[in-house]
Simulated assay, not measured.
Amino acid sequence: MRSWLLCISAGVLAGVANAACTNKCGSNKCLAAIAADPEFGESFCSSWLALEPATTTVTEVETVTSTLVNVETALTTLTLTTATITVTGSEHSTIFQKRVPTITEVDPALPDPTDAIVSQCSSNDDRISKACSCILSTATASTVTVFETAVATAVVEAESTIVETATENVVATVSVAAPAVTIPANIIVNGAFEGYLKTGNISPWTDTLTSTGGRLDIVNGVNPCSSANGVVTCAGGQVVIRPYPPTTGSKYVAIRETFVGRPSTTYAFSFMYRCLNYDSGTKIDVLYKGAVVGSANQCVNSASFSRSTGITFTTDATGQGEVEVRFRNSGATPYLYFYADDFSAIAV
């Protein structure tokens, strides 16, 4: 039985996590989530750990025959160099490359297994990495052997000295397509910041505090709701961020997140926000790969939140990108701050 299965079984029978398993495989809860679907789990882990194709080197030397006809004295010397065959992958190998997806459309009626794994692993990179290393430690690597045959025949009809030299240098490369990767409907991870309650951070978001200054608080207990055309919508969680942009220097503070979406696809980016102690220059800019793609500046004297509209970006052929949200204090207004929540990017 695989060692990680023993870890899961031990945790279930004892009712607690086995210490040895926890050290090696991380959280049993996280490990069980990845192992729930072995095929998907190995695909997910190979992508997460950014595994590269293995390289197999095969060396073979074949026997060479020489035929001598009507010769009283003949010397045949055959010199062969080693045939070196370098093979990368094979049609029988499964090679997982990190986030270079062949897109599989998601059935919105089914839960996304990636979300389930991230949730059970508490969005903790270290837990996921430990569990994945444990899952893949018993995987059998596929190898391919390529045989090249060098055969030389010398036919001599007169007395002479024959020297035959055969040299073969072969490099064979086989490319294997990466497996399908499931892209969720909303490609922004932890857009509601509820993961903060378990992890104590807003990962995979990062902030610009060290480079731009300002302040960023995580607030629990706010229930953001907005009203548009008489319809009231709420964020569904009570954790929000509270940015305080600086009044000098950059005059903004930002959060960023990298993601993988569908290649060459347009996404609508939106979020809920509220401005406090604002002026006419107060706004929130959204940047995709460093370029501004839209802004939100509907600050009103109301406890209700506003939802940004009309902000879109289009991914390139890789589907990979970074979105940055800048909370600006262009007028250097004292005590200006924002609330923000429920960030999402949905294909249109």
Score class of each variant (00 low, 15 high):
1 M>H: 03
4 W>H: 10
8 I>L: 05
13 L>M: 11
13 L>P: 00
19 A>P: 14
23 N>K: 04
24 K>T: 09
24 K>Q: 12
24 K>E: 15
30 C>W: 04
30 C>P: 00
34 I>H: 02
36 A>P: 05
37 D>V: 03
39 E>N: 07
42 E>N: 07
44 F>E: 04
53 P>I: 12
54 A>L: 08
62 E>V: 09
63 T>S: 15
64 V>E: 12
67 T>A: 10
71 V>L: 08
71 V>S: 14
74 A>L: 03
75 L>N: 15
82 T>M: 03
85 I>R: 11
86 T>Q: 11
88 T>V: 12
90 S>E: 13
91 E>I: 13
97 Q>I: 13
97 Q>D: 15
102 T>G: 04
105 E>P: 06
111 P>K: 01
116 A>L: 08
118 V>Y: 04
118 V>C: 05
119 S>M: 07
119 S>C: 04
122 S>E: 14
122 S>Y: 05
123 S>M: 14
135 I>P: 00
136 L>V: 08
141 A>F: 09
141 A>D: 14
142 S>G: 05
147 F>L: 08
148 E>W: 05
149 T>M: 08
154 A>P: 00
160 S>K: 09
166 A>G: 11
172 A>F: 11
172 A>N: 13
173 T>M: 09
178 A>N: 15
183 I>T: 15
185 A>L: 14
186 N>K: 09
188 I>T: 10
192 A>E: 05
199 T>K: 12
202 I>F: 01
202 I>N: 08
203 S>G: 08
205 W>A: 07
206 T>P: 03
209 L>V: 15
211 S>T: 15
214 G>P: 14
218 I>M: 02
220 N>D: 13
223 N>L: 05
227 S>Q: 13
230 G>L: 04
231 V>R: 01
233 T>E: 15
234 C>A: 13
241 I>L: 14
241 I>F: 01
245 P>H: 02
245 P>Q: 00
246 P>H: 03
247 T>E: 09
248 T>C: 08
257 E>V: 12
261 G>V: 13
263 P>N: 12
265 T>R: 01
265 T>H: 04
265 T>P: 11
266 T>I: 10
266 T>Q: 10
270 S>P: 03
272 M>T: 06
274 R>Q: 11
278 Y>N: 07
293 V>W: 00
294 G>D: 00
295 S>G: 03
298 Q>D: 15
300 V>Q: 10
310 G>H: 04
310 G>R: 01
310 G>E: 06
312 T>N: 15
313 F>V: 11
315 T>H: 03
316 D>F: 02
324 E>V: 13
325 V>S: 03
331 G>P: 12
339 Y>Q: 01
340 A>E: 11
340 A>T: 10
341 D>F: 00
344 S>V: 10
344 S>C: 06
347 A>F: 01
348 V>K: 08
